[in-house]
Amino acid sequence: MQTVGAGSLGKERKNTLRDSVFEKLKAMIITGQIPPGGRVTEADMAERLKVSRTPVREAFNRLERDGLVIGRPRQGYIVAEFNLTMFREAFDIRELLDGRATELAAANATAADKARLREMLAECERLAAIPNRSTREKFEELQVGIDLHRVIAEISGNEMLCGMLCGILDKCQQYVWTELLWLDEWKLTREEHTGIVDAICAGDVALAGERARAHVRGSRENILRLLQAKSDYQGFFAKAS
């Protein structure tokens, strides 16, 4: 029994390290610390994060699947440039999936589910109230906001829908960060999230779905306006680093 326990603990620690490295690398890319077009290698990141190359390699594989980096044989990885076509496609799909997931969540949410959503809103408010917030603290609010949509998808009870939406959300984070940072849409985003959760808690299926779709449409229009106005994506991210 002790041997099994030790092995399980080792596996848990390995998974924790793997996930930690992945989240750190993803945050560095999304916030522009590693800018679009920037080249990174397993060795450099392993040294920077003080870990072995194995979890870094696994993290880059996941990031490549999410479309955040592009692997180059014997050259490492290149951080993906913004792609307007992928952006439009991702947000078109997200509007459909997010709207439907939110409708189902409004129909299915339990008291515990509603309390969980309220707690996430409260965490966003707590992070927003921090004076002179750092980039890390702003990124934490971004993550909680994105996770709110993941939890809503989970509450929907539709596993396939949840999986598809979570995959799309992974592809949207970098764009959402750009919107929040450059347009300072933090307060509006919190208000819209509150409106969505209010509708879910009230069991208003139609209103919940419409608010979710309007939230995605507004974000898409903001980001599209920014992307079209910026021809130099390297400079575009300088403020985020």
Results as ranks from 00 to 15, higher is better:
227 L>A: 10
149 H>P: 02
118 R>F: 03
128 A>K: 05
202 A>S: 11
45 M>I: 07
94 R>K: 09
24 K>A: 11
176 V>D: 09
25 L>V: 06
7 G>T: 06
150 R>W: 07
86 M>V: 11
57 R>E: 02
46 A>L: 11
10 G>S: 13
239 K>D: 14
229 A>R: 09
151 V>Q: 14
186 W>R: 04
15 N>K: 11
206 A>N: 14
195 G>W: 09
184 D>H: 15
202 A>L: 01
10 G>D: 15
172 C>W: 04
182 W>R: 13
206 A>M: 06
74 R>D: 00
177 W>K: 04
98 D>V: 11
229 A>H: 03
7 G>E: 11
26 K>Q: 12
31 T>E: 10
7 G>K: 09
132 N>M: 01
141 E>L: 15
181 L>T: 15
129 A>M: 07
175 Y>E: 01
79 V>N: 03
155 I>F: 10
225 R>G: 15
117 L>W: 06
116 R>A: 15
36 P>S: 04
140 E>D: 09
240 A>L: 14
17 L>Y: 08
57 R>F: 09
101 A>N: 05
152 I>T: 13
179 E>I: 04
76 G>A: 01
211 R>G: 02
7 G>M: 09
53 R>T: 08
137 E>C: 00
225 R>W: 13
27 A>F: 13
119 E>S: 08
162 C>D: 05
64 E>N: 05
